[in-house]
Amino acid sequence: MINKQAEQIRKDFIKEYKHPSIKESFYDPVLTVKQVYFFQKLLLESDYKQKNDLFKALIHMQISLDIHDLVDLEFDSIEENRNQTNQLQVLVGDFHSSYFYRLLSEHNLLDELYHFIQSIKSINEIKMSLLHQDEIKIKDFNKLLNQVETVHCGLYYSLLDFCQMNKYKNDVEFELIKELVYHIDSYWLSLLKSREPAIEQAIDAKINYLNEIIITNRR
């Protein structure tokens, strides 16, 4: 399903936009082929005119959001290499978020800028709330999983809203969530599991539900 074209686009994108002193492998833990594939797929389904500019801007922002999650919560003063990677992860995240802003400004896509800012704000608010969620209760499991889904899929939802693809959203939403949240090594799911192991059952239930609904939809 995930095509070779998306893989090539990912490679070309990194080559074009990475800072010369940053290795390509630095992007291995972030920007998956699936993320590229879905941005491409949603834009291709839309009537939106400046697909390429918006596509690039969104990829930049997704990298920025994801790479910032990789920074250790506390630095270990002994591990010099890890510290340098942490520093670069902060900076490379900022670098790509500045590209997001720059591309949209250069192409005068200000409506797009203001639309996606709402989503970026809310993703960061959710991350902050998840990070400081010390006590997790069973009744909150679903709410928390929905929040993790927004963290990973927020920009995609926002794109569907911007392009007024509400009908298409119903077709693609479950696939998006399954592939971009539950089929990856999600930092946020791991964080919740580390704080409340019982949430793992809720995650399994969610995966089963998604699988069933995707099969039903395909029929």
Partner: peptide
């Protein structure tokens, strides 16, 4: 707090700043 809190605060403020210029 911790590094995550600092990073997400910075990211949030960045987005909020752009919103101010709307």
């Amino acid at each position: 707090w911790d590094n995550g809190t600092a990073i997400y605060t910075g990211d949030y403020i960045f987005a909020r700043t752009l919103e101010l210029l709307k």
